Measured scan of single mutants.
Amino acid sequence: TYTWNTKEEAKQAFKELLKEKRVPSNASWEQAMKMIINDPRYSALAKLSEKKQAFNAYKVQTE
């Protein structure tokens, strides 16, 4: 089980997950979700809006 003390740690864990699963920077949210949804870190960020925000930040960083 994973635990995160801060929102920032949770966001980092979520981005690490995207990186580890090699989600391409041109992937849509739907494509990315299919690649990461079974990992416990997918739940790091509770709100869908937070997940999408972190995903978009990840995409910008990896382009």
Rank of each mutant, 00 (worst) to 15 (best):
T1N: 15
T1G: 15
T1Q: 15
T1K: 15
T1Y: 14
T1M: 14
Y2F: 13
Y2T: 12
Y2W: 11
Y2H: 15
Y2M: 15
T3Y: 15
T3S: 08
T3C: 15
T3P: 15
T3D: 14
T3F: 13
W4D: 14
W4L: 02
W4C: 15
W4K: 09
W4V: 06
W4A: 06
W4G: 12
W4H: 06
W4R: 04
N5L: 14
N5A: 15
N5G: 11
N5K: 12
N5F: 13
N5S: 11
N5W: 08
N5I: 12
T6S: 06
T6H: 04
K7M: 10
K7F: 09
K7W: 06
K7H: 11
E8L: 06
E8K: 06
E8F: 08
E8S: 07
E8C: 13
E8G: 08
E9I: 02
E9W: 03
E9A: 04
E9S: 04
E9L: 04
E9T: 04
E9F: 03
A10S: 05
A10N: 04
A10P: 03
A10K: 08
A10I: 02
A10W: 02
K11D: 14
K11T: 15
K11I: 15
K11A: 15
K11M: 15
K11L: 15
K11E: 15
Q12L: 10
Q12Y: 06
Q12D: 13
Q12R: 07
Q12E: 14
Q12W: 07
Q12P: 00
A13Q: 05
A13F: 04
A13P: 01
A13L: 07
A13E: 04
A13S: 07
A13R: 05
F14A: 00
F14L: 02
F14W: 03
F14M: 02
F14K: 00
F14Y: 02
F14Q: 00
K15F: 15
K15L: 15
K15H: 15
K15Q: 14
E16W: 05
E16D: 13
E16H: 07
E16S: 08
E16A: 12
E16P: 00
E16Q: 10
L17A: 12
L17Y: 01
L17H: 00
L17N: 00
L17D: 00
L17M: 11
L18V: 02
L18W: 01
L18T: 00
L18F: 03
K19W: 15
K19E: 15
K19P: 00
K19Y: 14
K19I: 15
E20R: 03
E20F: 06
E20I: 04
E20L: 03
E20A: 07
E20K: 02
E20D: 14
K21D: 01
K21F: 08
K21Q: 07
K21V: 07
R22M: 13
R22C: 12
R22Y: 09
R22K: 12
R22F: 07
V23Y: 02
V23T: 03
V23P: 04
V23Q: 00
V23S: 01
V23H: 01
V23W: 01
P24H: 04
P24I: 02
P24D: 05
P24E: 04
P24A: 09
P24V: 02
P24C: 06
S25T: 12
S25E: 06
S25F: 13
S25G: 14
S25Y: 11
S25K: 15
N26H: 11
N26G: 09
N26T: 12
N26I: 07
N26V: 08
N26F: 09
N26C: 14
N26S: 10
A27H: 09
A27M: 08
A27G: 05
A27V: 11
A27R: 02
S28A: 06
S28I: 11
S28L: 07
S28P: 08
S28G: 08
W29G: 00
W29P: 01
W29V: 02
W29K: 01
W29I: 02
W29N: 00
W29T: 01
E30N: 11
E30H: 11
E30R: 09
E30P: 12
E30D: 09
Q31M: 07
Q31L: 13
Q31G: 08
Q31I: 12
Q31Y: 10
A32C: 14
A32I: 05
A32H: 00
A32P: 00
A32L: 02
A32N: 01
A32R: 00
A32S: 03
A32T: 06
A32V: 07
M33Y: 09
M33S: 09
M33E: 10
M33D: 05
M33K: 14
M33G: 03
M33T: 07
M33Q: 13
M33N: 08
M33F: 06
K34V: 13
K34M: 13
K34I: 11
K34E: 13
K34G: 11
M35A: 07
M35T: 06
M35K: 07
M35D: 05
M35C: 08
M35E: 06
I36W: 01
I36M: 04
I36L: 05
I36Y: 01
I36R: 00
I37N: 12
I37P: 01
I37T: 07
I37C: 13
I37W: 11
I37E: 12
I37L: 10
N38H: 11
N38K: 10
N38Q: 09
N38C: 13
N38V: 07
N38I: 08
D39W: 00
D39P: 00
D39V: 00
D39E: 04
D39N: 01
D39G: 00
D39H: 01
D39A: 01
P40G: 06
P40V: 12
P40A: 07
P40I: 10
P40C: 10
R41V: 03
R41W: 02
R41T: 03
R41N: 02
R41L: 02
R41C: 02
R41D: 01
R41G: 02
Y42A: 04
Y42K: 01
Y42M: 02
Y42Q: 01
Y42G: 02
S43Y: 13
S43E: 14
S43I: 08
S43C: 14
S43A: 12
S43H: 13
A44Q: 03
A44F: 04
A44W: 03
A44M: 04
A44I: 04
A44C: 05
A44P: 01
A44R: 02
A44K: 02
L45D: 01
L45I: 10
L45K: 00
L45E: 01
L45W: 01
L45V: 05
L45Y: 04
L45A: 02
A46G: 10
A46N: 07
A46E: 14
A46F: 07
A46Q: 14
K47D: 13
K47R: 08
K47H: 11
K47T: 14
K47I: 10
K47E: 14
L48D: 08
L48G: 05
L48Y: 07
L48P: 06
L48K: 11
S49C: 11
S49L: 04
S49Q: 08
E50I: 03
E50G: 03
E50P: 01
E50R: 02
E50N: 04
K51V: 04
K51Q: 04
K51Y: 03
K51E: 02
K51F: 04
K51I: 04
K51L: 06
K52T: 05
K52E: 09
K52P: 00
K52H: 06
K52A: 03
K52L: 09
Q53M: 11
Q53F: 07
Q53N: 09
Q53V: 08
Q53R: 11
Q53Y: 09
A54Q: 06
A54N: 03
A54M: 07
A54D: 02
A54Y: 05
A54K: 01
F55I: 02
F55K: 02
F55H: 03
F55R: 01
F55Y: 06
F55L: 11
F55T: 04
N56E: 11
N56R: 10
N56D: 13
N56M: 11
N56W: 15
N56C: 14
N56F: 11
N56Y: 14
A57L: 11
A57D: 13
A57Y: 10
A57K: 13
A57T: 12
A57R: 10
A57E: 15
A57Q: 13
A57V: 10
A57F: 07
Y58E: 04
Y58R: 01
Y58Q: 03
Y58V: 02
Y58M: 04
Y58F: 08
K59F: 05
K59A: 09
V60M: 12
V60A: 12
V60D: 07
V60F: 12
V60S: 12
V60R: 13
V60H: 14
V60Y: 09
V60Q: 14
V60W: 10
Q61T: 12
Q61F: 13
Q61W: 13
Q61N: 12
Q61P: 05
Q61S: 08
Q61I: 10
T62I: 10
T62P: 10
T62K: 09
T62H: 13
T62D: 09
T62N: 11
E63P: 09
E63N: 11
E63M: 09
E63V: 11
E63Y: 05
E63D: 12
E63T: 11
E63I: 14
E63F: 05
E63Q: 12
E63K: 12
E63S: 13
